[in-house]
Design a binder for these strands. Structure first.
Length: 270
DNA sequence: ATAGCCATGCATGATAATCA
DNA sequence: TGATTATCATGCATGGCTAT
């Protein structure tokens, strides 16, 4: 399994052999994972989830259905701004956004999402209008909270969700433009619950029936050009947030489980 | 605190070029 | 040949400034 049988002139390409098939794999940009490795990885993640092993990391629950609904109503910039704010969500009923001990106002949010006042105001106005954020007057300025129907650090209440790890996400999201972050946000409900594959049917229980989503489909779903889809997915892959594997001419994308994580226990799915 | 003005820079979509 | 990337014109965002 996975024996490199030929090294090509470009240095990093191998033939992977699995019985009767062969595939070209560029080991500089792709990984080769055996089923054994994959299963071991799953077990490790399950243990981590049960708290048996690994550090506890704070995470935000991201509910799939509301996010899918927002996808058609928000621009990439707006969705990117929203996901960039999630690391600042503070534990508690209200969904308050807090930075350095203070609830975040327009200026603090502008800094967090990397926009200047005019765009920040426009984005906040739209996110508030669409019900993703809730503005509250505090003195003469507004402070913001995230709608608990979309994101919470509390109970899931039987809805389907993906966890977003705050510390790692913050570090990674800072490297992304709001557009790139927006693509990630829109794709969040489309990573398979067990294999982390970007899929059209991310809740499919039979491995053989999982349909990977390709870049063109991502572009269509988001209403952006193929060229832009390639640029955005490429950026996410280069940052290590997504991983690309290629076999038999078909690319499959995975999300880095350090970034987001879907529970595997039955009671957390519908 | 917010918004208009305007030159400049950057992201975008269409499409051509290149890659494997 | 289909997938991916480069090119380029266009339009939106920004910075610096001023005005409410």
């Amino acid at each position: 399994m996975n024996e490199p049988v030929r090294r090509t002139g470009s240095g990093l390409e191998f033939y992977e052999v699995d019985g009767k098939h062969k595939a070209l794999v560029d080991l500089e940009t792709h990984v080769v994972t055996s089923k054994k490795q994959r299963d071991a990885y799953r077990r490790k993640k399950e243990l981590e989830e049960l708290g048996i092993q690994g550090r506890t990391r704070s995470f935000v629950l991201c509910f799939h259905d509301p996010i899918r609904a927002l996808m058609g109503r928000l621009t990439l910039d707006e969705m990117g701004a929203l996901i960039k704010l999630l690391p600042y969500l503070k534990y508690g009923e209200a969904g308050d956004l807090v930075h350095q001990g203070k609830r975040m106002d327009k200026a603090a949010i502008g800094k967090a999402i990397g926009k200047k006042q005019r765009q920040t105001a426009a984005i906040l106005s739209k996110l508030t209008k669409e019900g993703a954020l809730i503005a509250k007057k505090e003195g003469r300025k507004s402070v913001y909270a995230v709608a608990k129907e979309i994101h919470t650090m509390g109970e899931a209440g039987g809805n389907m969700f993906t966890k977003l790890f705050q510390t790692y996400a913050k570090k990674q999201l800072e490297k992304l433009t709001t557009q790139q972050a927006g693509v990630l946000y829109a794709l969040l409900p489309f990573f398979h619950y067990r294999d982390y594959i970007l899929a059209v049917n991310p809740n499919e229980t039979d491995d053989d029936l999982i349909e990977p989503m390709n870049i063109e489909e991502v572009g269509k779903m988001l209403g952006i050009s193929k060229a832009s889809a390639y640029r955005h997915i490429g950026a996410l892959t280069r940052e290590g947030i997504m991983l690309e594997t290629r076999a038999y001419g078909v690319s499959t994308f995975y999300v880095n489980p350090d970034f987001m994580f879907r529970a595997t226990r039955g009671n957390e799915f519908t």
